[in-house]
Structures are given as C-alpha cells and as structure tokens.
C-alpha cells in the first residue's frame, strides 16, 4: 500500500499558498525542517517568520499578524503547539476569533522513539474545549493537502493535527476537503466505525476482518472533530445501533468523547472508544506502540464485537 507523510503535503500546500495568497504568513518555532513549513519559506521567505523556541510568543505574534489582516499558519510539534501555549491560543486567537491556523505535526504515539514528552495524546481534547475553535485531523496526506487549502479559505481560529510518519494513502490526489463534513469510506449495517487521522485506515482494515466473520461495518472518516458532523454520526448509528471510535489520542476528550456526548444526548447507543487509556506513551517503534497501547485493527475489530454485544 502506498504511504505518504501528511506533513510533507502540508508543506506542498503551503508552497502553493505562498504563490497564490499574498495574505498568508507562516510562523514556526525552530522546527521548519520537520513541520515542512520550510517549503513555504523557499517560495516566500519574506512572509516566513522564525519565532525561535518560544511558542507562547509565536502565538501572540500570530494573533497580532492576524489582527492586521494576515492569514497566519503557526506550526510546531503538537505537544508544543497546543500545550505550551494553550492559554495564549485561548486569549489571543480563540476569544477574538482571529484568523490563526495552528497546524501541528508529530501528533500521537506514532512519533515513536522520541517518547512520551513528544507524543501529543491530549491535543484534540484541549483544543476542542476552546470556544470558536475548529479541530481537524485528516486521514491521509492528500486529505492533509486539501485541508490546508480549506483552512486558508475559512475565517477564524483552527487547529489541525498531522502525523510525522508515512501513513497509508486512502484518497486520490485531487480529493477535496469540506470542513465539518465527514466522509463515509465504506457502507455497512452492523456497527459504525468512526475514525480520525491515520486510524481511519485501520478502521478499514478492521472492517475487512469483520467482514470475514459476517459483520458489516459502516466506516466513517471524521476528519473534522469540531464542529462534529453529528448528522453523519446519527445517520450511521440509526442504521447500526452501535459504534466504535478510533483515534491516536487519549480516550479522554477527543473524538470518542465527542461522539459519545452527541449520542448520549440524542440517540443513546453503545460507544466503545479506541485510544490511549489515560496513560502517557513511551519510546518504541510505532508498530510496537500501537500494539502495546491497543490501537491496532485487531483492537478496533474486538471493540466492534463488544459494541455489537452491548447493543444486543
């Protein structure tokens, strides 16, 4: 299966925006080579801002630039982009609804060997809780490219998380992106598998496994976590009656929480959440870590069986 890194396509999209959008400014905190904002710098160095290892200042500067009419992309690793400067994002960007797009790379446990200090497993949760904030987690590299262009076209504060590693390609190169709209990846009637980020690919693998057991899975790519496409969730669950959520993130406050909140208030149904269970990660190969922390396609399939059994 073809694999590509989301961050590389973020860089390509920024390079395109450098040519097409005079109002776009990119700011980074000493990680341009890793986040791939370096691709923008190559094309428009006069609109690239190096903030140094000073993420709180980076966000404040981004807010000031946005208040002056710029569309600002601010990037660094997910832990630092959200955790180090959460309150700067809250006051400077979210509260006044400024046009700052915080795009992080190196989200989740697939960061691997660097260990828990660098594995953001809480970023969706803490960003989702901010009023006015849009939260996006694309499923593959092409969707990351399209989502970057969509971010440039939307007004207001947004957060997008991207991975470091190469992940399976699920879409064609010309895939579009509509913020707030989920995509059905596969139709089924027995259980809804709702994934985000690279977990969508694993949901599809799980659906294959389940199919061999005669279980038909409805697979949804929830690439926008906020605003959640509630209609898509309810349409699927009204058919299946039970759901599994899958995210490379803590089960606390992320996609699983969002789906459970929606269903419990509107259409109570079993929801089994795949994600890290209130724990930090550790060093290791991504594959080893996915197995140890219960994030594999087998884990998703087992969760589907559990969700179905709770419905019955």
């Amino acid at each position: 299966m073809k694999k590509l890194a989301q961050r590389n396509y973020y860089g390509k999209a920024l390079a395109k925006l450098a040519e097409t959008r005079e109002d776009v400014v990119v700011i980074d905190a000493d990680l341009a080579g890793s986040t791939k904002t370096s691709e923008f710098r190559k094309v428009a160095p006069e609109r690239f801002v190096e903030a140094g290892i000073a993420e709180q200042d980076m966000i404040g500067v981004a807010a000031g630039l946005a208040a002056s009419g710029k569309t600002v992309f601010a990037s660094t690793f997910a832990v630092f982009a959200t955790g180090r400067c959460w309150e700067q994002i809250r006051l400077g960007c979210a509260y006044p609804k400024l046009n700052v797009k915080i795009v992080s790379t190196h989200c989740g446990i697939s960061v691997g060997a660097d260990g828990a200090s660098h594995q953001a497993l809480e970023d969706i949760s803490i960003m989702r809780s901010l009023p006015n904030m849009t939260v996006i987690s694309p499923a593959d590299a092409y969707e990351a490219y399209a989502a970057t262009l969509a971010l440039a076209d939307c007004k207001g504060p947004c957060y997008m998380r991207l991975g470091r590693a190469d992940v399976p390609v699920l879409f064609d190169e010309d895939v579009g992106f509509e913020i707030g709209r989920a995509r059905r990846m596969r139709s089924g009637s027995d259980v809804s598998l709702i994934g985000t980020g690279q977990m969508v690919s694993l949901c599809l693998d799980a659906a294959d496994m389940l199919e061999s057991e005669g279980i038909s899975a409805d697979v949804i790519n929830m690439s926008t976590i906020k605003p959640l496409d509630g209609a898509a969730v309810m349409e699927s669950v009204s058919k299946t009656g039970c759901a599994v959520t899958a995210e490379e993130h803590s089960v606390i406050g992320g996609l699983g929480s969002a789906v459970a909140e929606l269903l419990s208030e509107n259409m109570p149904a079993p929801v089994v959440r795949i994600g890290t269970r209130d724990t930090f990660g550790e060093s290791g190969d991504p594959d080893q870590l996915f197995r140890k922390y219960g994030l594999t396609a087998e884990d998703i399939a087992a969760a589907a069986r559990k969700s179905i059994s709770m419905r019955e």
């Binding site: 404040g60 630039l65 002056s68």
Partner: peptide, 10 residues
Amino acid sequence: LSMSCGIALA
C-alpha cells in the same frame, strides 16, 4: 507585547 510584535511586523 507578543501581540504588539505581530502587529508591528505586519
């Protein structure tokens, strides 16, 4: 002061 830097830079 950070916000002011952003406005000044713009």
